[in-house]
Amino acid sequence: MSLSPGAAELSDLLARAADGDAAAFQLFYDRTATKLFGIVLRILVERGEAEDVLQEVYVTVWRKAAAFDPARASPVTWAATIARNRAIDRLRARGNRPSAPLEDAMSVRDERPGADELLATAGEAARLNSALATLEPRHAHAIRSCYFEGVTYEALALREGVPVGTLKSWVRRGLLRLRTELA
């Protein structure tokens, strides 16, 4: 995997953090925390809970820095994946407490410059979006809801008023088709 200059620098910071270099880790935090907090907050909506999770995420990043392999993922994708998984785990731990739909989540946001340029080239995002645009709008919407909100198939099926099997099929078929489009 070829890394952009920003990603190469972040990879280097992670490698130094793995050796116990706290200053390098702080630089990594400074460069990525805004992006990761956005991702966690979008899933959890509640600020206090999102802050707790972000703390867990960076403690995990520090401890697992040695496990990061630039050949397998970009450094921000790697850290963003940890953030999503921690946030989803916290969301599940809430049990059946209803979560606000996406629109409410986004109304609490506090937009600041992100690290988008580090995350993916604009081209990658544009390609994924044009591939999504080839799907049935409801199917593409279901995929986005799953990814951005961390909802289960069951919860989303209930919200959309369709059987779970139907929803799974929309999402999985949609993603397989995306993969073909992007190949």
Partner: peptide
Amino acid sequence: QLSPLDAETPGVA
């Protein structure tokens, strides 16, 4: 494959 979607999520400090 999915990570480019993260570009759509606004950063929050």
